Amino acid sequence: VSVELPAPSSWKKLFYPNKVGSVKKTEVVFVAPTGEEISNRKQLEQYLKSHPGNPAIAEFDWTTSG
């Protein structure tokens, strides 16, 4: 189950709350306009370098507050 949070234009930000008793931590995933899922800052940096014209990296908020 995921919750969609505010994201930069043409992107989606999905929040996957951890299940009770789960060892997996809460996860935030950005979905690029191409449909590619980005789950960490390093991936995001690589994606933005190879896909010019996207929002600046500073516009991506990895917190769950939206």
Rank of each mutant, 00 (worst) to 15 (best):
E27T: 14
G53D: 08
L44D: 00
K13V: 06
F60A: 01
S22L: 08
V31N: 02
K42N: 11
W11N: 02
K19C: 11
Y47E: 00
E59V: 06
F30N: 00
S65G: 13
Y47T: 00
K19H: 13
T26N: 14
Y16T: 07
I57F: 13
L44R: 00
D61I: 08
P55W: 11
I57S: 07
P8W: 04
P52Y: 04
K12I: 09
P52T: 07
V28Y: 03
G53A: 05
K19A: 14
S2D: 06
A56Y: 07
T63P: 03
L48H: 01
Q46K: 13
P17M: 12
S10R: 14
S50F: 09
P17L: 12
S39R: 15
S9K: 14
Q43V: 07
F60P: 02
K25R: 11
E36K: 04
S22N: 11
S50D: 13
K25S: 10
V3I: 14
P52H: 06
K13I: 04
D61F: 04
S39T: 15
S50Y: 10
F30E: 00
T63M: 07
Y16N: 06
G35M: 03
K42F: 12
V29W: 06
V28C: 05
V29Y: 08
K13Q: 03
F15G: 05
L14Q: 05
V31G: 01
N18R: 09
K24I: 15
T64W: 12
W62P: 01
H51I: 01
L5Q: 07
A58R: 10
P52K: 06
F15D: 02
P8A: 04
T34G: 05
K12Y: 06
G21H: 09
Q46A: 12
P52I: 05
V23F: 12
E27D: 10
V3W: 09
P33W: 01
K13P: 02
L48M: 04
Q46C: 07
S22H: 09
P6L: 08
E59N: 06
G21N: 11
A56H: 14
V20G: 14
H51T: 03
V28E: 01
N40C: 06
V3G: 06
S10L: 13
G66T: 12
K42R: 12
P33I: 03
K24S: 15
F15C: 10
L48D: 00
F60W: 02
S50K: 10
I57Q: 07
S2K: 09
A32V: 01
V31E: 03
V20P: 14
P17H: 11
V1C: 14
G21L: 08
N40R: 04
S50Q: 11
L48I: 05
V28F: 05
S50R: 10
T26H: 14
Y47I: 01
F60Y: 03
G53C: 07
G66R: 05
A32R: 00
L48R: 01
W62G: 01
N54E: 09
P17G: 07
A56I: 07
P17W: 14
K25I: 09
S39F: 13
K24L: 15
W11F: 03
N54D: 03
F60K: 02
K13D: 03
S9Y: 10
W62S: 01
Q43K: 06
T26I: 11
P33F: 03
Q43F: 06
P8Q: 04
E27P: 10
V29H: 06
S2E: 08
V31T: 04
P55Y: 06
E37V: 15
V20R: 07
Q46D: 14
S65Y: 10
L44G: 00
G21V: 06
L44H: 01
L44F: 01
V31L: 11
W11S: 02
K13R: 04
S22P: 11
E4L: 10
E59C: 13
P6F: 07
L5A: 07
T26E: 13
F15P: 02
Q43D: 13
S50P: 01
Y16M: 07
P8I: 04
T26W: 15
P52C: 04
S9G: 15
G21E: 09
P52V: 05
G21C: 10
